[in-house]
Design a protein around this nucleic acid. Structure first.
Length: 423
RNA sequence: GUGGGUGUAGCUCAACUGGUUAGAGCAUCAGGUUGUGGACCUGAGGGUCGAGGGUUCAAGUCCCUUCACUCACCCCA
């Protein structure tokens, strides 16, 4: 019986992994410029953390967590998102005590027990960032501009930024009541799910995909008209900052996020051709979460983006990824020269040259064919002639020029042609 | 958890209303060129037709069951 990868998980094979490394490389550089430093937290935590952090009535907690008991009967859960763990670490190490502002980022796998579909996996990888300690709308706008900056560096186009606010402890309940009252009039026309949401979480009706619900929701009161003055000013400032640097966004009054902890600013960046799951990045502000997890009263904001989906979007736009190039292939003729060849390729590599070789004794034709296939710039032949005459036979695969030189000259020839080695 | 679609060679796909030994392209390997690549030519290897059961003289094809993949819903990166 063949064992294969479990449902919703997959192997990232070398050809695709090149893309992942490239994305991570770009993202790390940009984070560095914005002052975000990397944190690694465990991929499993006590279940309690996610229940308190994400919210008991969210779908993630209710039905999507990979939860198990360890040998001592403690309930543990594979992390479904990154914020809760990052904040836990932030509090556990009292990072708030040594700095007024902490900016963290992380890259790693997340786990959700959902049915897989296009752009959705049970194990997927998120790149996330959290800015802890500032209530200033400056940060909200900055974090969105940072994301745009990342996408621009990756060469991704046609992304749309959607922006909304979900208010705070003061004004959200007011809006919630208003909304509930408005929707109650059409209760019988709502879908079954939304009938439940009406009492449990009316805000979620706003992004229901059932067309009849969409119709009902169309003229619903706008939360922007119910905000307290603090949230109102905050939202206005965020928009002004974005306008200032000419970042285009769409105000979407139906945008509400699935996690309970969000306050004020929420946003989502999506790409149309991804299929039904079209968000590549999303996030928002969470001004009560740190305190709810047992820390000081302290605001925060963060986002997460999915590498799996980024790769799909970049493939869709046919964005090319730089790949490692082979500088020289060493063709070995006959077993007698094995020692000579072993030493030679060792020296080449010590000189930072990417040298490849096939270990099996194959025909020269076959070896040249392979060198062409892997795109090697040069081929060096290690045969009896070379050993006897103590010379290096080197061929430039593009110009087809072949010459006999000594070792130093061979290295110089290669370095002159390979950008990476020129200094 | 619910619904639709699809499972044939390493990959992409053929095989008419059931009918002999299941084919092709790409890839791989060998030879044409015994020390020289991409093109071309010739040839070779590679399949329990997803699995199990049933109908039939006969099943890749029809029926049932099951598994996997896939897309969509709920929800989300």
């Amino acid at each position: 019986m063949e064992i294969n990868a479990v449902r919703g998980t997959r192997d990232i094979l070398p050809d695709e992994n090149i893309k992942w490394q490239y994305i991570e490389h770009i993202v790390r550089n940009i984070f560095a410029r914005y002052g975000y430093t990397e944190i690694k937290t465990p991929i499993f935590e006590r279940t309690e953390l996610f229940i308190r952090g994400i919210g008991e009535t969210t779908d993630i907690v209710e039905k999507e967590m990979y939860t198990f008991l360890d040998r001592k009967g403690r309930s543990l859960t594979l992390r479904p998102e990154g914020t809760a763990g990052a904040i836990r670490a932030f509090l556990e190490h009292k990072m708030f005590a040594s700095s007024p502002l902490t900016k963290l980022f992380y890259i790693g796998p997340m786990f959700r027990y959902e049915r897989p579909q296009a752009g959705r996996y049970r194990q997927h990888t998120q790149i996330g960032a959290e800015a802890l300690g500032s209530i200033n709308p400056f940060v909200d706008a900055e974090i969105i501009t940072m994301l745009i900056n990342i996408f621009e560096h990756l060469g991704l186009k046609n992304l749309s930024v959607e922006l909304n606010t979900v208010g705070c402890k003061e004004c959200r309940p007011v809006y919630r009541d208003k909304l509930q009252e408005y929707l109650a009039a059409s209760e019988n026309e709502l879908c079954e799910d939304c009938k439940n949401r009406l009492t449990r979480n009316p805000l979620r009706i706003l992004d229901c995909k059932v067309s009849s619900c969409k119709e009902i929701v169309k003229n619903v009161p706008d939360i922007a008209d119910s905000l307290c003055s603090d949230c109102q000013k905050h939202f206005d400032s965020v928009k002004k900052y974005l306008d200032l640097v000419e970042i285009k966004y769409i105000r979407n009054k139906f945008l509400v996020r699935g996690l309970d902890y969000y306050t004020k600013t929420v946003f989502e960046i999506s790409y149309e051709n991804l299929g039904a799951q079209n968000a590549v990045a999303a996030g928002g502000r969470y001004d009560n979460l740190i305190e709810e997890l047992g820390g000081p009263s302290m605001p925060g904001i963060g986002f997460a983006m999915g590498i799996d989906r980024l790769v799909i979007a970049m493939d869709d736009q046919k964005i090319s990824f730089p790949k490692e190039e082979v500088d020289v292939f060493l063709a070995i003729m006959g077993e007698e020269v094995a020692k000579y060849a072993f030493n030679l390729i060792h020296i080449l590599r010590k000189n930072d040259i990417h040298a490849e070789v096939l270990y099996e004794n194959k025909s020269l034709k076959n070896q040249f064919s392979y060198a062409g296939k892997i795109g090697s710039k040069f081929v060096i032949i290690a045969g009896e002639n070379e050993v006897l005459k103590n010379i290096i036979t080197i061929k430039n695969m593009e110009t087809k020029q072949q010459s006999e030189v000594n070792l130093e000259e061979a290295i110089a020839i290669i370095k002159a042609q390979v950008d990476r080695l020129k200094v």
